[in-house]
Amino acid sequence: MHSHPLKRNKKRQYRLSKRSIKDEYIDKQIWLLHRAMTNKIIKQPQLTQQVIAKLADFREQGRIGYSDYLHWLCLLENVNDSQAFNDGVLENSNKMKRLRRQTPFVGILTEQERQAALTAEAIGIIDHPDILFL
């Protein structure tokens, strides 16, 4: 008896992802911005107070759960250990990808710093997004 071609092969060593190329691109941009923000926060640790205030706002507005709130606070406690802070915020896990999408690091970068972070590793500039779908 043949198995249906769309049925899941349990012997497969990889996991199919429901994430699109667009999701991966957005996550990469968010990661680049967070790398710039963590570097700035490490150089200016007083910025953690701004982040903690934003976290408190998120909690009051119901925009962040208690577990995620505590996770961000724990990360911020490591600001004096730059390696641990960077590793924690920039971790390549599904949880951190999700957390970075609703970041409390709002307002850390100026617009110029934000643009520089996004273009620093760019291979080139895309004039129009339609080129991505040729």
Rank of each mutant, 00 (worst) to 15 (best):
P45A: 05
A56F: 00
T103F: 02
M37N: 05
F105Q: 06
A84V: 13
Y66I: 08
L47F: 06
I26S: 09
A117E: 03
S67M: 10
M37K: 15
L118K: 02
L47S: 08
I123A: 13
S17C: 06
T119P: 02
I123E: 14
D68Q: 08
K43L: 12
E91H: 07
I30F: 02
L75A: 10
V106M: 09
K18C: 12
I30S: 03
D68N: 14
T48P: 08
K22E: 14
R114F: 04
K43W: 00
I52A: 12
M96F: 03
K18L: 15
N9T: 05
N39F: 01
H4I: 00
A120F: 00
A53K: 15
D81L: 02
N80T: 13
R101L: 07
E113T: 01
L33Q: 07
I30R: 00
I26R: 09
H71F: 10
D68I: 01
I42G: 02
I64D: 00
N78T: 11
Y14M: 12
I123Y: 08
A116V: 03
L134C: 07
M1P: 06
E121Q: 15
N9Y: 08
K54N: 15
Q44R: 14
A117H: 04
L76H: 02
L118V: 03
Q83K: 15
K95Y: 08
L118G: 03
A53G: 10
K18M: 14
L32S: 10
E77Y: 05
K28W: 12
G107M: 03
G88M: 10
R100H: 04
Q13Y: 02
K43I: 01
F85H: 07
Q13N: 12
F58R: 10
N78D: 13
L134F: 05
E111W: 04
Y25D: 09
G65Q: 11
R59T: 05
K43A: 15
D81A: 07
R98G: 05
R35K: 15
Q13V: 07
Q13A: 14
F85N: 08
H128A: 08
I108W: 04
M37P: 06
L33W: 01
K40A: 05
I126V: 14
S20C: 05
R100Q: 05
W31S: 02
I125Y: 13
Q49M: 11
I125Q: 12
D87P: 06
D127Q: 14
C74P: 00
Y25R: 15
E113I: 01
F85G: 05
A116Q: 14
L33Y: 02
I108F: 04
K54M: 08
Q112Y: 01
R63S: 13
L99E: 05
V79T: 08
H34V: 03
E121S: 13
K97Q: 12
I42E: 01
Q50E: 12
Q44I: 03
